[in-house]
């Protein structure tokens, strides 16, 4: 706290925005505190925004959709098409899951762009949990569909026995790296983007303490922040899309063994 106050006086601490604060303390479970944190608050806000918007926009149930209903229907159609293209019409059984995942990440990324808001997806705990959920569904569905034949996943045919152990090890590593790359990509993009924004915004404040010349110089980082904000909104949408499309592709692998 002391260092935080010290850094606050002259420069902006770019990491401070990721601090997790306990808002309501419920006590302890084991040795860790059990609390309602700002992260949980923003996840709740995300879910409430999505549910509220969906319910409000489809309240009219117009045959000819209004403006709000059109947005919801377009989002629905977009997700449905994405899933159908990647996993076929059989994949539509996972539609509720993919739609929930996509809308949660998209809205969480986007409300993270609002100043003073907490970016839920910039924490690897969240993205890791989401990626593990995806892989759990892939593995669970694969085992329920193929039985123990699903383990053949790691054993290619027509491989000489001598190098088979090495190939199996590489295949297993490749499989394990899937949730890792899925979670790290989303988390690293959000984290790096928000830190970059904060650093450039900090330049403006630092430069403006130097008087008129500083103000003139501060125009450059200010332009940079404007450009970066636009880029970050693109990245927020893009990363949600990438997460969703990869989920679809992994689900497709479990659904349709033949491509």
């Amino acid at each position: 706290m002391a260092s935080e106050a010290a850094t606050h006086s002259d420069t902006v601490d770019p990491i401070h925005q990721f601090h997790i604060n306990n808002l309501v303390d419920f006590g302890q479970i084991g040795h860790s505190t059990f609390a309602f944190t700002n992260s949980a608050l923003f996840m709740a806000i995300t879910v409430m925004l999505i549910v509220g918007f969906m319910m409000l926009s489809t309240r009219g149930r117009g045959l000819v959709p209004g403006r709000m209903q059109n947005v919801t229907e377009m989002f629905y159609e977009f997700t449905a098409n994405m899933l159908r293209e990647a996993a076929g019409s059989e994949g539509m059984r996972f539609f509720p899951f993919v739609f929930t995942l996509f809308s949660f990440i998209l809205v969480a990324n986007l409300i993270g762009m609002v100043p003073y808001f907490f970016t839920v997806t910039a924490h690897i705990v969240i993205t890791g949990a989401l990626a593990l959920l995806v892989m759990a569904i892939v593995v669970g569905y694969g085992f329920s569909k193929h039985g123990f034949g699903f383990l053949k996943l790691f054993v290619p045919d027509e491989v000489p026995g001598l190098i088979l152990p090495m190939i199996v090890a590489i295949e297993i590593l490749s499989f394990i790296s899937r949730p890792v790359s899925l979670s790290i990509r989303l988390f690293a993009n959000m984290l790096a983007g928000h830190i970059t924004l904060k650093v450039f915004a900090g330049f403006i404040i630092s430069l403006s303490t130097f008087g008129v010349i500083g103000w003139a110089g501060a125009v450059l980082p200010f332009l940079m922040v404007v450009a970066l904000t636009a880029l970050e909104i693109l990245v927020a949408v893009l990363q949600a899309y990438v997460f969703a499309i990869l989920t679809c592709m992994y689900l497709n692998d479990a659904l349709h063994p033949s491509h």
Partner: peptide, 12 residues
């Protein structure tokens, strides 16, 4: 390279 899931198809 084809994905590892192609193998499952052959067995099934």
């Amino acid at each position: 390279i084809a994905g590892p899931y192609d193998r499952l198809d052959k067995d099934n």
